[in-house]
Amino acid sequence: MGSLIFLALLVVVVGWLIGAYNGLVSLKNQTLNAFKQIDVQLKRRHDLIPNLVNAVKGAMDFEKSTLEAVIQARNQAVKVNAAGPEAIKQISQAENALSSALSRLMVVVEQYPQLKATANIGQLQEELTSTENKVSFARQLYNDTATQYNTKQQQFPTTLVAGMARAQAADLWAIEDQAERAVPQVDLSMKPKA
């Protein structure tokens, strides 16, 4: 009788071990996959930018510095991305710099209605908007998956298996640009403007 209970306990413990181990491995791979998804979208963005720059270059001779900032940020991002997931901090820094350079360019484009009216620019703008959204949604998905993975490895009792499954905490994407983190000033006093 005693040995039967012991055997049943052993089966339960081993079953749980296998389940927890496999669960961690599956989450780890999901996290890696989510990271690759960001890569796919970033690559798309890098490929799109030269087209955009070419399309607006002729009409925007006087905004050279804005264009050059975009090209530079793009080249930097491409370079850093080649380093792979280990360089996640640098990648996110470079991509954030590219994001702000692009949004400055878009603001400039808005100021030239005749430029915006060109079908080609409208199309490129749509593609760029979509790509920006895809990048941020892919990051969101990565952060969600990585958080799930991190939580699982830290929680008891799964944490006992974490070492065996060689689980390591995954870094999350974060805002590096301090300007983006700043709280926007909102005036709700409803005072009529002078």
């Binding site: 593609e127 908007t129 979509s130 959204n133 895809k134 949604f137 969101q140």
Partner: peptide
């Protein structure tokens, strides 16, 4: 084209 883009975005999300 916009519809396709939006669906792709939300599928990623």
């Amino acid at each position: 084209k916009q519809l396709v883009n939006v669906v792709e975005e939300m599928a990623i999300a």
